[in-house]
Design a protein around this nucleic acid. Structure first.
Lengths: 101, 101
DNA sequence: CGTGTAAGGAATTCTGACACG
DNA sequence: CGTGTAAGGAATTCTGACACG
């Protein structure tokens, strides 16, 4: 379920190289609740490949002039949708198995 | 063809955390030709998830008392096998397509 | 042979702040 | 709001070497 894409192992310097974003920008997007890196014991940020992809999406939105606040709202909506879909699926599965009982 | 598993983005410190090997050991295995990290512009080593897996295999072999030299020989043999298999496949494909001409 | 360690330097990362707008 | 930058400190990484065995 958790693959390499989700493992938080990339330092901010490498994320900078991969995305072209400045470290300042990357930290700021975290401040705005758009990315959530892990922290090593000593406090350095660790990102996953998923985070890198997300940051590239954010970079594109920013270029279009979308504000971080709006990006955050959109991300919340997406999250909501995903939850609803999951609940529906769960409900159907339950109904199915209840019928077979 | 090249996935996240092959992307060299992990610093030696994180590799240490993931494998349990000391940085000294990790660098030594490189010296012996067992792993080949990339280098960032400034010279710090970058490993891939594949490298991490390889290092864990090496760690197991070492625990069994296998010397780095032998591990290297085995890796070369494996590499050879892979090449032969590829050449055979290529040959069969060629024969196949030549027949259809 | 394989690994630990101390050494000194260079590069990285962190935070909080000021700047501009 | 979003980003650059200088500041000072702490943590990371690098290399070459000595040590033990």
């Amino acid at each position: 379920m958790t693959s390499y894409k989700d493992k938080k192992v990339i330092t901010i310097g490498v994320v900078h190289e991969l995305t072209g974003l400045s470290e300042r920008q990357i930290r700021y997007y975290e401040e705005r609740g758009l990315v959530f890196p892990d922290r090593s014991k000593k406090g350095t940020r660790k990102y996953s490949f998923n985070d890198v992809e997300l940051l590239m999406d954010i970079a594109n939105k920013r270029e279009e002039g979308v504000q971080t606040y709006e990006i955050r709202q959109d991300m919340k909506k997406e999250e909501k949708k995903r939850q609803v879909r999951e609940e529906m699926l769960r409900g159907q599965l339950n109904a199915h198995f209840n019928m077979r009982k």
